[in-house]
Simulated scan of single mutants.
Amino acid sequence: MKIALVGIGKIAVDQHVPVIAGSSDWDLAATVSRHGAVEGVEAFTDMGAMLEARSDIRVVSLCLPPVPRFDYAMQTLKAGRHVMLEKPPGATIAECHALEAAAREAGLSIYATWHSRHADMVAAAKVWLAEKVLRSLTVTWKEDVRRWHPGQAWIWEPGGLGVFDPGINALSIVTEILPDDIHVTHAELDVPENCQTPIGARIAFHHPKGAQVSAVFDWRQEGDQTWEIEAVTEAGTLKLSDGGAVMEVDGTRTGDAAPLGGEYPRLYDRMAQLVSKGGIDMDLRPMTLVTDALAIGRRHAVAAFFEGPQ
């Protein structure tokens, strides 16, 4: 199937473009971007112009920041094309519901992707936890924003999510592997004095069966990056590390994939399945947890953030 990629930034260049190129399901037929392009692929700077010129393109993958994504997605659906959404699927829960409703009405597929759910050992962790009594679950997600989001000023603006941009990856795993839904009960948010979104967060969750569930997110990590989830049960302890690429159960390690390894190919495999069957996949639980943390979180002003030396 011919697919268009909209928003040629870091994540598109690092993940989407090579994955599409290596897939037997997809042909990258066009891009839309104000600043980026892919060599050998027809490039547009206007979404409407692409949709009008390329009626042969059935699917559009949106890699834009979350705030402008709704308008592009709705324009795509109105043009009768299927939509794939980078995470998070939008800037608000309500607009995501509106997109799903529009897709259903038009008989089109829409997919809110959560790439970390497709890390190598997430499915195995879900199976292992399914019949266990959970006592506690802790998330530690710490990385260097300068390394992973260079020049992306939008993440510090309203709707950009700040540290929840990577933190939502952890929550997409948690909501996938836990057999019971959780919700936010308390949050402490560190917000740089020159930013609108947090650079650090500490969150507590309610678990319906009494387990202690918490998360720590931080974008100020230097050196080794930390993407870990530890679940303590009555039958042992499970630990996911490297963003879900590695699993340990009571010290026995399984998995040798690199972080992000295989995640995006599985997203595009899933999108191909949805389009072939006319399906919709719009799980908004990770985004709900983030928006609730932002809604009830107590904000603490911290030092201003600057990407380069001042």
Score class of each variant (00 low, 15 high):
residue 273 Q to A: 12
residue 269 D to C: 06
residue 306 F to C: 14
residue 244 G to V: 03
residue 205 F to C: 04
residue 227 W to I: 07
residue 204 A to K: 11
residue 172 S to H: 07
residue 122 V to T: 13
residue 208 P to D: 00
residue 302 V to S: 04
residue 252 T to M: 11
residue 103 A to I: 06
residue 216 V to D: 10
residue 50 M to R: 01
residue 103 A to D: 05
residue 175 T to W: 04
residue 88 P to H: 04
residue 22 G to M: 05
residue 214 S to W: 04
residue 10 K to N: 08
residue 145 V to D: 11
residue 231 A to K: 01
residue 151 G to A: 04
residue 224 D to G: 00
residue 97 H to I: 07
residue 148 W to T: 10
residue 38 V to C: 06
residue 84 M to E: 07
residue 94 A to T: 07
residue 220 R to K: 12
residue 191 V to R: 08
residue 30 A to R: 03
residue 211 A to T: 08
residue 206 H to L: 07
residue 188 E to M: 12
residue 288 T to N: 10
residue 67 V to W: 03
residue 27 D to E: 15
residue 51 L to Y: 07
residue 202 R to D: 13
residue 11 I to W: 03
residue 132 K to P: 01
residue 134 L to H: 03
residue 169 N to K: 12
residue 95 E to D: 15
residue 231 A to P: 01
residue 48 G to R: 15
residue 90 G to P: 02
residue 241 S to A: 14
residue 59 V to N: 12
residue 90 G to R: 02
residue 287 M to S: 04
residue 191 V to L: 09
residue 214 S to F: 04
residue 212 Q to T: 15
residue 14 D to R: 15
residue 213 V to M: 06
residue 111 Y to M: 05
residue 231 A to F: 01
residue 272 A to M: 08
residue 204 A to M: 13
residue 192 P to S: 06
residue 181 D to L: 12
residue 202 R to V: 14
residue 51 L to R: 06
residue 179 P to Y: 04
residue 173 I to M: 12
residue 309 P to H: 14
residue 161 L to D: 05
residue 274 L to G: 02
residue 304 A to Y: 01
residue 102 A to D: 06
residue 153 A to D: 14
residue 298 R to H: 15
residue 82 H to A: 04
residue 176 E to P: 08
residue 51 L to F: 13
residue 239 K to E: 14
residue 191 V to Y: 11
residue 61 S to V: 11
residue 102 A to L: 09
residue 203 I to K: 00
residue 158 P to I: 06
residue 163 V to Y: 04
residue 134 L to M: 15
residue 200 G to D: 00
residue 279 G to K: 10
residue 129 L to C: 07
residue 20 I to A: 00
residue 83 V to K: 00
residue 6 V to N: 07
residue 310 Q to G: 12
residue 278 G to Y: 13
residue 229 I to R: 02
residue 63 C to K: 05
residue 266 R to E: 12
residue 292 D to A: 10
residue 14 D to H: 07
residue 310 Q to L: 14
residue 24 S to W: 04
residue 39 E to M: 05
residue 41 V to F: 00
residue 70 F to D: 01
residue 25 D to I: 10
residue 29 A to G: 06
residue 6 V to M: 01
residue 261 G to M: 11
residue 266 R to T: 11
residue 139 V to C: 07
residue 225 Q to W: 11
residue 308 G to K: 15
residue 308 G to F: 10
residue 21 A to S: 12
residue 245 A to S: 14
residue 186 H to T: 07
residue 35 H to E: 13
residue 113 T to C: 14
residue 216 V to C: 10
residue 165 D to A: 13
residue 12 A to W: 11
residue 112 A to V: 07
residue 276 S to W: 09
residue 67 V to H: 03
residue 55 S to R: 10
residue 296 I to Y: 05
residue 213 V to D: 01
residue 184 V to T: 02
residue 144 D to C: 10
residue 3 I to L: 09
residue 309 P to N: 08
residue 250 D to H: 09
residue 51 L to E: 10
residue 134 L to I: 15
residue 63 C to W: 13
